[in-house]
Design a protein around this nucleic acid. Structure first.
Length: 419
RNA sequence: GUGGGUGUAGCUCAAAUGGUCAGAGUGCCGGGUUGUGGCCCCGGAGGCUGAGGGUUCAAGUCCCUUCACUCACCCCA
């Protein structure tokens, strides 16, 4: 019979990879906590409408990447393709905004997008998501980015590129968009096929095109910075000023356009050269009217999403040789000793000490080999002779030295070693 | 969704133009004389060569289908 495999694009995270994942998560908890973030856990399944309104009807995500189905033919539900919409839904549903003026939330979990799998791109992937709801002060933007950079730093990832941009606001962006459309409209024929399509859907995306001709054309196009209103300009400058205070290296990227409709003003990305085409590790930005668009008060917000798998792939695998094994291996010889060893082994485990033993009744040599393979610091040899004398041999595996110990004192001795 | 590449033991890989080609290293298990790991030596288990069809006297080796992985496009985390 054939085994059943995981669904295409869905991955198991198995040891020792899970160790790395927990390390990342713990780092996030610690760092985010210090910046005032609290964890929120939201459902993986939401009404489809939430994402249509939140992310934007014309985005690729909504148009063709969502796992959507009808629940018993009644209601259209969707596995979340991103977390922000859900977080805001919960924020509104629990009227958190009424209880406080600044809300900092983060969540870690799986997202689902039905794309063609590729390195760094899976159908179920994970994100670390952080959102600040309430303030629109540029220092908020800066603190969020600072926290992000600090977090990456804590994970030993200093050599990533931070790029920032401002997309303007509802007041100034439409004019810019219009200018771009009319500029490109006059050169439709020169654009590549993709860009001709983008012109209708998301004209700003043309800035991102990798085709040489398009790049050449777009380099002469109107620039957002010339259209941006004074408020947005001030905001953006303050964000940059704050980043400079901390000497955070960043690059202005006027061509950076984000894929979700809701972004306003500050947007940012963290990229790396080590991931091939999927080079974005983090994406984020301000969304000043998303809360309103989802039916709530007009509360501004800003957030980011870290691609967990992409982040993890940048962190070298922790060397298994360096990670330490069990403290103790109990090698038992004979039935009586085996019974005694079983008791001892599990009692010590209940004290929180990692102890291993073998039930197969193998030779001492074989058990010692096992202790060595497992990288145990100590081995306890418990044979017929020792049982008779109420003793055991405690062997230090690193120093290859052993001593006889009294069985009655054993637990105490081991507990001391555990410290 | 589009285009290219790959798919042989747990892992990394070999098998000229189809004909003992089903292998090596590593890992795993055991042994090298009485109850002691690491190095060394010896032995063993483990693959219907991703799956399903087809061509052929004969197929990992050719053809088709399918699945998976992979790279790029699209897009994004």
């Amino acid at each position: 019979m054939e085994i059943i495999t995981a669904v295409r694009g869905f991955k198991d995270i198995i040891p020792p990879e899970t160790d790395k994942w927990r390390h990342i998560e713990e780092t996030a908890y610690r760092v985010f906590g210090a910046f005032g973030f609290r964890e929120i856990r939201v459902p993986l399944l939401e009404k489809t409408e939430l994402f249509c309104r939140g992310i934007g009807e014309t985005t690729d995500i909504v148009e063709k990447e969502m796992y959507t189905f009808f629940d018993r033919g009644e209601e259209s539900l969707t596995l979340r393709p991103e977390a922000t919409a859900s977080v805001i839904r919960a924020y509104l549903e629990h009227t958190i905004h009424a209880a406080e003026t600044v809300t900092r939330l983060f969540t870690i979990g799986p997202m689902f997008r039905r794309e063609r799998p590729q390195k760094g791109r899976y159908r179920q992937f994970h994100q670390i998501d952080a959102e600040i709801l309430g303030p629109d002060d540029p220092r908020t933007d800066a603190e969020l980015i600072l926290m992000l950079i600090h977090f990456l730093d804590k994970l030993g990832l200093a050599k990533l590129n931070l790029e920032i941009n401002s997309l303007g606001c509802a007041k100034c962006r439409p004019a810019f968009r219009e200018a771009i459309v009319s500029f490109l409209g006059g050169r439709v024929e020169e654009l590549c096929g993709d860009c001709q399509r983008r012109l209708g859907t998301n004209p700003l995306r043309v800035f991102d095109c990798k085709v040489d001709k398009c790049g050449e054309i777009i380099s002469r196009a109107p620039r957002l910075m010339d259209f941006i209103c004074q408020d947005c300009r001030d905001h953006f400058e303050k964000v940059q000023g704050c980043l400079s205070l901390f000497e955070v290296p960043y690059r202005l990227n006027a061509k950076m356009v984000r894929g979700l409709d809701y972004y306003t003003r500050t947007t940012f990305e963290v990229t790396t050269e080590f991931l091939g085409a999927q080079n974005a590790v983090v994406g984020g930005g301000r969304y000043d009217h998303l809360v309103r668009d989802l039916g709530g008060p007009d509360i501004p917000g800003i957030g980011f999403a870290i691609g967990f798998e992409r982040l993890a792939s940048l962190i070298p695998d922790r060397d298994q040789d360096v990670s330490r094994g069990p403290l103790l291996f109990i090698a038992a010889l004979g039935e009586k000793a085996g019974e005694r060893a079983f008791m001892l082994c599990n009692r010590l485990r209940m004290k929180g000490i990692h102890v291993e033993m073998d039930y197969a009744g193998r030779s001492l040599k074989s058990q010692m080999k096992r202790a060595d393979r497992l990288k145990c610091a100590y081995a306890l040899i418990l044979g017929e002779r020792e049982i008779e004398e109420n003793s055991a041999l405690l062997r230090n595996m690193h120093e290859s030295a052993q001593e006889e110990v009294c069985l009655d004192d054993l637990e105490e001795i081991i507990k001391k070693l555990a410290r």
